[in-house]
Design a protein around this nucleic acid. Structure first.
Length: 273
DNA sequence: CGTGGACCCTGTCGGC
DNA sequence: TGCCGACAGGGTCCAC
């Protein structure tokens, strides 16, 4: 379920259960993820102690405490991490267990297997998957000025531009659509043809929807990590995502859908220009 | 270099 | 009821 808010919710949810915990056993059931699970992962992790999880973009970083090295975990399209108990039988698509000394298990579930876990030896920031990433959307470095500057000469549609990890990380298909609605910008509009002041609004809108969604993730945190079930994906009211053909909540016009960069994009033909 | 398309894999849903 | 195609939260790679 991972857009940035889900990844952040996951990070917060698992942290109290895994920080400072020793890994007593690694159980691999399916190792053919998007990147094959490193064969030596059990050897490296068994007996090691986990530190405090961090997040960069949609990546979770699980550093070890007393040894160099970090787990780089991406949930892909359908991955989830949750806390289970030892002895709790794995279900279909539960591919990886990290058994902890507490008797809990950090369990990875991923039907589509677009996610992966990899081992980073030392300097995580140097990894090619992380080094090119733009700023976090909730950081001060993400501004309308940045969007404006990077968009000059870019003819691509603004929606895929906003989803470009070099521009800003963590704005996935759902939140890009929602941010563009709030900012009143047509997702098809060429990035180069958007004025500075409108990018200010767009940056603020992206920040706003992501922050709100993270706050909401918090409300379902307990259920999420204890494995009572998935959180209702979005308790949040979405304005456009998944609402093709329905009336715009602001003006009543019927929402339209277009494909941009292979991704569905729903928008209001009246409110978004 | 910028851009658009294919692709990795499984599950679900809507139309016929 | 059953089959089949379209589509799904992401990211990388490859032609043009």
């Amino acid at each position: 379920m991972p857009e940035l808010p889900e990844v952040e919710t996951t990070r917060r949810g698992i942290t109290p259960f895994i920080a400072d915990q020793e890994i007593t056993e690694v159980r691999l059931r399916h190792t053919r993820l998007r990147v094959p699970v490193p064969a030596d992962l059990p050897d490296r992790l068994t007996g090691a102690r986990l530190g405090t999880p961090r997040r960069r973009a949609k990546y979770l970083l699980l550093p070890l405490e007393n040894a160099p090295g970090t787990l780089l975990w991406h949930l892909g399209m359908s991955g989830s991490l949750r806390i289970a108990r030892v002895g709790e039988a794995p279900k279909k698509h539960d591919h990886i267990d990290l058994v902890l000394e507490s008797g809990r298990v950090l369990r990875y579930h991923d039907p589509r297997r677009f996610g992966f876990v990899d081992w980073l030896q030392a300097d995580a920031a140097r990894d090619s998957r992380l080094s090119h990433l733009g700023p976090e959307p909730l950081s001060d470095a993400f501004t309308g000025e940045r969007l404006y500057r990077l968009s000059r000469g870019r003819r691509m549609a603004v929606k895929p531009f906003l989803m470009d990890n070099r521009v800003v990380v963590g704005v996935g298909n759902i939140y890009a659509a929602e941010a563009l609605f709030i900012a009143g910008i047509d997702p098809r509009r060429a990035a180069s043809r958007i004025a500075r002041v409108r990018f200010d609004r767009l940056a603020a809108a992206a920040r706003e929807v992501l922050a709100a969604a993270i706050t909401q993730g918090g409300t379902t945190l307990r259920d999420f990590v204890s494995g009572q079930g998935e959180p209702g994906y979005f308790a949040q009211r979405l304005n456009v995502y998944g609402r093709e053909g329905k009336p715009c909540r602001r003006c009543g016009a019927l929402l339209k859908r277009v494909a941009l960069g292979q991704r569905a994009s729903v928008y209001c033909p009246v409110c978004q220009r």
